[in-house]
Each structure stands twice: as C-alpha cells, then as structure tokens.
C-alpha cells in the first residue's frame, strides 16, 4: 500500500516539483495550498507524512503544525518543514510546535526524497 504524503505550499510550482518527485518515488500525494486548506483536506483522513512550507497565506506553517499536533487524529504524523536558512527562528518555532524534520530551501528533489525516506519507508 502506497504511503501518502501531504504537500502544503502556496507556490504551485514548488508543490508540483515536490509532488512529481514523490510520485516518482512511489508515494501517493495530496496537495494543499495553505494550512487551513490542509486541515480541511486532512479531516479524518490520516496521511503518513506532511511536508509544509512555513510562510503561507491564511494559515502559516507554524499554526498549521500546532493545530495538527493537537488533533488526536494526526498528532503523531511526522512533519517536514520547508525552511530557508534565513528563518532560523522560524525553524526553532516549528520544532517547538512539533515539526522535527526540515529541509532547507532551495533543495533538490533527491534531498527531499532522502528526508522523506528517513521518516517513512516507501
């Protein structure tokens, strides 16, 4: 059974790049454009991993992770944060919120996949 990864980012192109890489590696992908969209799409449907951007309209990545970690349906789901080097404070905030893994932008598809594989087997 293919594992499912949710990709949350407001940049369509980035979402697409990540999704293409993930599908290529055999994962199923659900896309969301920001935190609230992600929560809505998740509902009670559990995914194996969430990859989320930090800066997004409506609900940013940090608030999203906080909400996710408080939801009994999703609180153990691993989260990879997409950070930039300039966001050291955000990274710490994200970690405190419960996103323990991160990939620094810009990243190569292989880097992304490597991080995913460290969290969930294909």
């Amino acid at each position: 059974m293919a594992k499912t990864v949710m990709v949350v980012d407001d940049s369509i192109s980035l979402r697409q790049v990540v999704s293409i890489a993930l599908r290529g590696a055999g994962y199923a992908v659900v896309e969301a454009c920001d935190g609230s969209d992600a929560l809505k799409k998740l509902g009670s449907q559990r995914v194996n991993l969430v990859i989320s951007d930090v800066n997004m309209p409506n609900m940013d990545g940090i608030s999203f992770v906080k909400a996710l970690k408080q939801d009994p349906q999703h609180r153990f789901t691993p989260v990879i944060m997409l950070t930039t080097e300039a966001e050291a404070a955000k990274k710490a905030e994200g970690q405190a919120a419960g996103a323990k893994a991160w990939v620094v932008k810009p990243f190569q598809p292989a880097q992304m996949l490597d991080a995913v594989k460290k969290l969930i087997a294909a």
């Binding site: 609180r75 153990f76 789901t77 691993p78 989260v79 419960g98 323990k100 893994a101 594989k117 460290k118 969290l119 969930i120 087997a121």
Partner: peptide, 9 residues
C-alpha cells in the same frame, strides 16, 4: 513517537 519518528522507518 510523539515527535512523529518511527525507529522502524
């Protein structure tokens, strides 16, 4: 586990 890690993975 609470951090979302699975030693198995």
């Amino acid at each position: 586990f609470r951090s979302g890690f699975d030693p198995l993975s």
